[in-house]
């Protein structure tokens, strides 16, 4: 169980409505990192739950384009150093999230929980060219 998610939920912190009614059960939320082993192969959890609806917490990276149905979930807020980076470098352990509706942007440093159908395998987004290894389809999300 995600202790932080449980704690914040228990405290009744505001959860702004996502694009669709929130169907998640708090007790089955995992962290994004739980989809991967250290060598970046898929974890047992990911392999077992492929094709099922799962609930995953992380951070919404600043969207690649406006009016998108798609965002990238990261383990930690995606910090960029203007002095250190010539361009944003995506971490390897990310999750592409495809939502039912156009996304409402949540600050990149606010923890969210997203729920959708887990898909594994390489996929290139036809619109953005973004290549993902693991995705959530038909997803909804809210602040953790």
């Amino acid at each position: 169980m995600d202790r932080r998610h449980f704690l914040l939920a228990a405290l009744g912190l505001p959860a702004i409505a996502a694009a669709a009614p929130w169907p998640a059960r708090a007790d089955d939320t995992i962290r994004l990192r739980d989809l991967y082993n250290k060598d970046l192969s898929f974890s047992g959890y990911a392999l077992e739950r492929e094709g099922e609806r799962v609930s995953i917490s992380g951070y919404m990276a600043p969207p690649l384009k406006a009016e998108s149905h798609f965002f990238v979930l990261t383990n930690r807020p995606l910090a960029v150093c203007p002095f250190c980076e010539t361009e944003a470098q995506w971490p390897d352990d990310i999750l592409a999230v495809y939502c039912k509706r156009v996304i409402e942007v949540i600050s990149f440093n606010t923890r969210i929980v997203t729920r959708g159908k887990l898909e594994l395998g390489t996929f290139t987004d036809p619109e953005t060219g973004f290549v993902s290894r693991v995705r959530l389809a038909d997803a909804v999300y809210e602040r953790a």
Binding site: R3, L8, R31, P77, V80, C81
Partner: peptide, 26 residues
Amino acid sequence: PELTNDEAMDKDYIQQALIPMSSETH
């Protein structure tokens, strides 16, 4: 936010900061 020691000691925990920036500075 409220905070427990277990949460703070998680390897992905981000320590609290004051001024909002997309990357902490030198």
